[in-house]
Simulated assay, not measured.
Amino acid sequence: MRKAGLTASGVALALALTACGGGTVSGTPSTPGVDTGVPVSTGIEQLIASASQKTTDTESAHFTTEVGTFGMAIRMEGRASFDPANPAMAVTMSVPGHGQAEIRLVDDVVYMKTDGMGSADKPWQKVPLDELAEAQGGDISDPTITMMDAGDPTKMLEQIREAGGEIKKTEQTTLDGQQVTQYTIEVDPLEMMDSMGGGIDVDGAELAGLVDSIGVIPMELYLNSEGLPVRIEMHVDFSEAVKEIGARMGEELPADFPTEAFKMSMVMTYEEWGTPVSIEAPPADQVSDAPAF
């Protein structure tokens, strides 16, 4: 397990951004009868394997990801092809106070256009996907890698499986007018971090306090009648963890400490499954190579 030199808030932010999403769901109980192709008594391994395979087979979707974290509302929207042989993605991201960013993945090359990068005549910068991943060392806090993973539900599903998620409840409900199966899953936060590629040393007082205070991470997975993900949702309260870590470090937090800022909301929503996706690289005369990492 690798070590990551993160503060308490850094761990919280990294986990929140990697999960990617935000908001709430209102589910109305409906009568049984939704056939997702997955038995309601299934274990996590079978559930994740089935949903991931159906995602790969269907290949494409439109997705929206909203992250509520540290008082900010971050929104990502895009479309993607999940064909393992030729993945493609186009994502736009809006961050309060930081403007917008646009990222495209085409033919294993990442194209980025963000405020403060590039030039007026060449607003896009490019870097091969493998070079980007190698340069970042799998850093889960890197926003580019975060956005690429946010578009592919199989990434999140695999992280849930690797983290030893446990299905605690299964029920039929409706979501945005369609019948779905809702799976309530609990995940260990430390295992979740490790599955994201950000393995950490648990010996430090910060992380011991974090794990003790968080307990488990509750998640909701919604599958439609075809067994495809339509929403993955997570809500995590890091406020007690931050207080605990502060106390262990001899830094008592003030009475007016904004605990609400450390309550994270994350939702990934998918629709238009199977709709053909056409994503092209930006015009060559508008692209320059990204600076060396």
Rank of each mutant, 00 (worst) to 15 (best):
S213I: 10
N224F: 07
A208Y: 06
S213T: 10
A208E: 13
L228E: 00
E220M: 12
V211N: 13
I232L: 14
E220K: 14
G227S: 03
E220R: 10
I214D: 01
S239A: 15
L228W: 03
V211E: 12
V216W: 05
A247I: 07
D212A: 13
M234S: 15
V216H: 10
V242P: 00
L228R: 00
M219Y: 05
E240Q: 11
N224C: 01
S213N: 11
D237K: 02
E233G: 13
L221F: 04
V236T: 14
I217T: 09
G215M: 08
V236G: 04
A208W: 01
M234T: 14
V230Y: 04
L207H: 06
H235G: 13
E240T: 12
L221Y: 00
G209D: 14
S213V: 09
V216Y: 09
V216S: 15
E233F: 11
P229H: 03
L228C: 01
I232N: 08
L221G: 03
M234Y: 06
L221T: 01
V230C: 07
E244G: 13
K243Q: 12
V236Q: 10
D237F: 02
G215H: 07
A241M: 11
I214N: 08
L228Q: 01
V211H: 13
M249Q: 13
I217W: 07
L223G: 05
G250V: 08
V216M: 12
L210P: 07
L228I: 00
D237L: 06
N224L: 03
I245K: 01
K243N: 09
I245A: 14
V216E: 15
L210S: 09
L207M: 14
M249S: 12
V242G: 02
R248C: 07
E233Y: 12
E226I: 01
P229M: 06
V230H: 05
R248P: 01
D237G: 03
Y222K: 02
I232A: 12
G246V: 03
G246Q: 07
L210D: 11
K243R: 15
V242R: 08
Y222H: 08
S225K: 12
G250W: 08
M249A: 14
D237A: 06
L221M: 10
E226A: 15
L228N: 00
L207V: 15
L210F: 14
G209T: 13
I232Q: 04
I214T: 04
I232P: 02
I232D: 00
E233W: 09
L223H: 04
A247M: 06
G227C: 05
R248A: 12
G209I: 05
H235Q: 14
L207T: 11
M249L: 12
V242K: 11
A241D: 06
